[in-house]
Measured scan of single mutants.
Amino acid sequence: MDEEYDVIVLGTGLTECILSGIMSVNGKKVLHMDRNPYYGGESSSITPLEELYKRFQLLEGPPESMGRGRDWNVDLIPKFLMANGQLVKMLLYTEVTRYLDFKVVEGSFVYKGGKIYKVPSTETEALASNLMGMFEKRRFRKFLVFVANFDENDPKTFEGVDPQTTSMRDVYRKFDLGQDVIDFTGHALALYRTDDYLDQPCLETVNRIKLYSESLARYGKSPYLYPLYGLGELPQGFARLSAIYGGTYMLNKPVDDIIMENGKVVGVKSEGEVARCKQLICDPSYIPDRVRKAGQVIRIICILSHPIKNTNDANSCQIIIPQNQVNRKSDIYVCMISYAHNVAAQGKYIAIASTTVETTDPEKEVEPALELLEPIDQKFVAISDLYEPIDDGCESQVFCSCSYDATTHFETTCNDIKDIYKRMAGTAFDFENMKRKQNDVFGEAEQ
């Protein structure tokens, strides 16, 4: 370990593993360490099931009705991949897709007046949907046509809207959309967690709705994908990429100290040895004095023996409960997957309800979601602090990732990755940087 590296990475969460992969592909010498004996950090999948019970201090362990412990891979952080989103792009560019198998999530649902409705995925579904009345549908269709044709580089498509100054509230007004449709559009399509976006320039919202539609167009059922064997497969896929390009991995490796000289990182000390480096990437748990708390998320993992009611017996789905429907500031989400994804025993389902904490009784906040899941065989409640770095790391060369937020997709995580890359490399992130180099010394032969 007593060696000189360009970059040392602490923690094998998804953000850290993707950055480690990119740095290795770009010719950097990388050492990647984790104090845990497993990959994934906060974003790991726990197996066998006995391990999950232990982690949540349920000492009696799983009953026999849960089947074989080894058949379970339970995500600690519930997220899906947008089919046309940035993480899929990263997987394709790096060819990490060859280590993973994905399934399309069967449906996306939205909560309205105590019931759940399928988010329409085709024009026919939209016309048949009970989510809105006849005239509302016509106006909504006009709005969707506007979004589909919108091109930020072609003012002819703006229809009198200025993407940089017109607020989204004004765009909704222009198409005369009612409150329910606005809730549905902002939260189930643009996937905002709160209503803060309404008074911001509309460009980002329009682009988010386009991303949803384009992702949906790829597979038809929903815009989301999920990897077989759980999300823990993602960091491992990128760790393989890093290793192929010469990255060194050490799990179960305690970090005793991060060594600084004149305010700059110069190395990491572990078990009496020092590895030197020019730059350091880590998750917040490794540098508690360089991060601040930015809120909390509650996630309740529920094991069920039945599909969720009114989802047409889907073996995977997402449910969004827009905040307006339950008098909150932030949406509540449910991600459900099952034995069909090799993450649970035969006939079992895993539904994870999550939201940003707003009160001193977080469990009560998630109740509307839990009511949709009854009866629940077993619950595991996790309340996590969200951390963000206190500075950009440019001076110390210590670059810290943000905690995983309450969103049900990876777009915010990818933004964090691109942002850290830019601060480390001094140049904007470009997907081309992730391409495997042809015929290089570490390149794998085609399968």
Rank of each mutant, 00 (worst) to 15 (best):
G246D: 15
L58Y: 07
R98D: 00
I319M: 09
E125T: 02
R141Y: 08
F158P: 14
K253N: 01
I287S: 11
M250N: 14
I319K: 02
N73S: 12
K89E: 07
I383M: 11
V105I: 13
I116S: 07
I298D: 13
S222N: 05
G267K: 06
D101C: 15
K156Q: 13
I420M: 13
S121L: 08
V334A: 05
G347I: 02
C400H: 15
Y39S: 02
C282P: 15
P227C: 04
P368H: 07
L370T: 14
E411G: 10
E411D: 03
P48L: 03
V88T: 06
A428V: 12
D331V: 03
Y5I: 12
K221D: 15
A445H: 12
D71I: 07
C317N: 05
G41C: 06
A445D: 04
N324S: 11
T166P: 14
Y117C: 11
Q378P: 02
D289M: 07
V255L: 07
P155R: 07
K103T: 11
W72A: 03
L228S: 02
S401K: 03
D183C: 11
N312H: 13
Y333D: 06
D430Y: 00
V441G: 01
T97S: 08
S403P: 09
H306L: 00
S213R: 10
P322L: 02
D283F: 08
A188T: 10
G393S: 07
L304V: 09
R98N: 15
I417V: 10
V9I: 01
I8C: 11
N415K: 06
P288L: 08
F109A: 12
N36H: 13
I300Y: 01
E365G: 04
D419Q: 05
S285I: 05
D170H: 03
L386F: 06
G443E: 10
R328V: 01
E50M: 05
F102S: 04
D199E: 00
A275V: 09
L14P: 01
G107A: 07
M33D: 10
A126C: 13
K103Q: 07
N252K: 06
V334E: 01
P362Q: 02
T194F: 15
Y111V: 05
L241T: 01
G67A: 15
G114R: 02
S354N: 06
N26F: 14
Y387S: 00
V181T: 11
S213Y: 12
Y387R: 14
K118G: 03
E123H: 13
S384R: 10
G267I: 04
D34N: 00
R173S: 14
T94G: 04
Y117S: 06
N327G: 02
T427I: 09
V265D: 12
D257V: 05
G237Y: 04
C400I: 10
S316C: 12
I376T: 07
K29G: 02
V398L: 06
T15A: 10
K112E: 10
V274E: 06
G443V: 07
A425T: 12
E261W: 15
S222V: 14
A275T: 08
I182S: 10
H187D: 07
D151Y: 03
A428Y: 14
E214M: 01
L386K: 12
F150L: 10
G443W: 12
L216S: 03
T311N: 00
G67V: 07
K264I: 12
G237V: 04
D34L: 03
G113W: 11
S215Y: 00
E432I: 13
E261R: 08
A243T: 03
P288A: 13
D71M: 13
Y197L: 15
R423P: 00
P120L: 03
S384I: 06
E95V: 05
D289S: 01
F140V: 06
F140Y: 00
Q86L: 14
H306Y: 04
V145R: 12
Y421P: 02
T15F: 15
E106D: 08
G426A: 04
F143H: 04
Q236L: 01
V171H: 06
Q236H: 02
E358Y: 15
G178W: 08
V381I: 06
P375A: 05
S222R: 01
R138T: 04
L280F: 13
C394L: 12
E16S: 04
V147E: 06
L52T: 03
C302S: 12
E374S: 13
D419A: 12
L76V: 12
L31R: 00
Y111S: 05
M250I: 10
I320L: 06
F410G: 00
N327D: 10
G272W: 04
E367V: 12
K309S: 13
P63N: 08
F102C: 12
W72V: 05
S384N: 04
C414F: 12
I420R: 15
H32P: 03
C302F: 05
Y99F: 09
